[in-house]
Write a protein that binds this DNA or RNA. Structure first.
Lengths: 178, 178
DNA sequence: AAAAAAGTGTCCATTTTTTAGACACAATGC
DNA sequence: GCATTGTGTCTAAAAAATGGACACTTTTTT
């Protein structure tokens, strides 16, 4: 199911022209667009405003384009708001950087120049995915299944690693039909 | 803490020379190395053997290098063994492909030609990370925190989405010190 | 600004789940 | 072949979850 409007997006890029272009490109999709040319105040903003998605450029130090800045701020954001999706965007496309970004918790990785339609589609996908909030039981089932798999069927070990008794593990497996 | 030996690795690549090179490169790190030149039988193998890590090439159709084959098999493996780490490796480095691979559940994305030391280090990292099995309570705490964050503090909504009563949510928050 | 709606924090008694410990009986390892 | 480790099931006691209630506060609507 697609939504009409996708809430508030925070866009951070040190290039004003790009901020303008993004604002225009995203205006049809988001109810509210906050743009920032520096990531310094991002944590303050996130504590003051209700933001649903962050679109974060990766390079803010002139002449440096390793993406370290972006990774730093990505991690800072995700540390304080683990559920807030962050999409990275950079002109210096690099497989290694993309891998590190995603492993650090980014929801997607966009390269400049971007295609407007594709960008909007990706952002929508991210927000649609973020909406699926699994129930505690579903989460539990999943985790239990993984634990048993990881222990190659050794129930005692699995229960130990899960921090519950073996009997409780049997109970849950019956109840959750694992 | 580092382990001495890292169990069994399954390596899948259609180039025999690469398999030989990888076998040599990984022999010091893994107790057992299974090599396959085709991914067709991978699910059968995984049901028969205890495998701790899969290193999967992304292109198996001659002349086609979109990585679709790799993504297909990655998804097949992860569908049946969600806890088994899969590392992708490809000669056709492409940011988009890396993103899709990681979003499909790959643990890392290596480009050919690879650096032996770096490859071994990355594979070790993946296995060390896979070893951290969170306890059920830790998992729960995490999920609860996220739910509350996502509901911007609305406890009733958070409890609903978690599939528990509001009182139980309060209980858990007290017990888990959320 | 008043009324309606939604959310909060805390209580209760009842039902359900988890726990530690025990048991006889497979597997597995050396 | 014996020792260790794991399995599945059973208790009784402790702990947690449930639906429902309550007076109160905040938010939304009109």
């Amino acid at each position: 199911m697609q939504k009409d409007k996708y809430g508030t997006i925070l866009v951070i890029d040190d290039n004003e022209a790009i901020l303008t272009a993004l604002r225009y490109c995203l205006s049809g999709t988001f109810q509210r667009i906050i743009t920032k040319s520096s990531p310094d105040s991002v944590l303050t903003i996130l504590n003051q405003e209700v933001v649903n998605l962050v679109l974060l450029d990766m390079n803010f130090s002139i002449g440096v384009n390793t993406g370290q800045d972006g990774l730093f701020w990505l991690r800072a954001i995700r540390k304080h708001h683990p559920e807030l999706p962050v999409v990275l965007i950079t002109a210096y496309a690099d497989v290694n950087l993309a891998v590190r970004g995603l492993k650090s918790g980014a929801s997607d990785f966009i390269t400049k120049p971007w295609d407007n339609d594709e960008l909007v589609r990706k952002l929508k996908d991210v927000l649609d995915a973020a909406d699926d909030m699994a129930t505690l039981d579903e989460m539990e089932t999943d985790h239990i299944r993984r634990a048993i798999d990881r222990c190659h069927g050794n129930m005692k070990l699995a229960a130990e690693q899960l921090g519950i008794t073996r009997q409780t593990l049997y109970n849950k497996m019956k109840k959750l039909e694992v």
